[in-house]
């Protein structure tokens, strides 16, 4: 039973760390990828465009 707790703690400390690093890297790549730039710029401007009516 003691092993079980030690295992969970070890898992938290190792996997948890790598999981977060991996997530951070993935997000950074996704956000910074040059090919996404246009899409994001367009998204930022999209709300300011005047379209008065819902399309449906």
């Amino acid at each position: 039973m003691i092993v079980e707790h030690a295992f969970l703690v070890g898992f938290s400390k190792s996997f948890g760390l790598f999981y977060l690093i991996a997530l951070s890297v993935a997000v950074a790549i996704h956000a910074m990828k040059p090919s996404n730039k246009q899409r994001f710029d367009e998204a930022a401007r999209s709300i300011l465009r005047d379209e008065a009516e819902p399309w449906r």
């Binding site: 003691i2 079980e4 969970l8 703690v9 948890g16």
Partner: peptide, 11 residues
């Protein structure tokens, strides 16, 4: 990940 080990903490 953070909370799970606490449920075995009684060990």
């Amino acid at each position: 990940v953070e909370i799970a080990p606490l449920f075995t903490i009684h060990q």
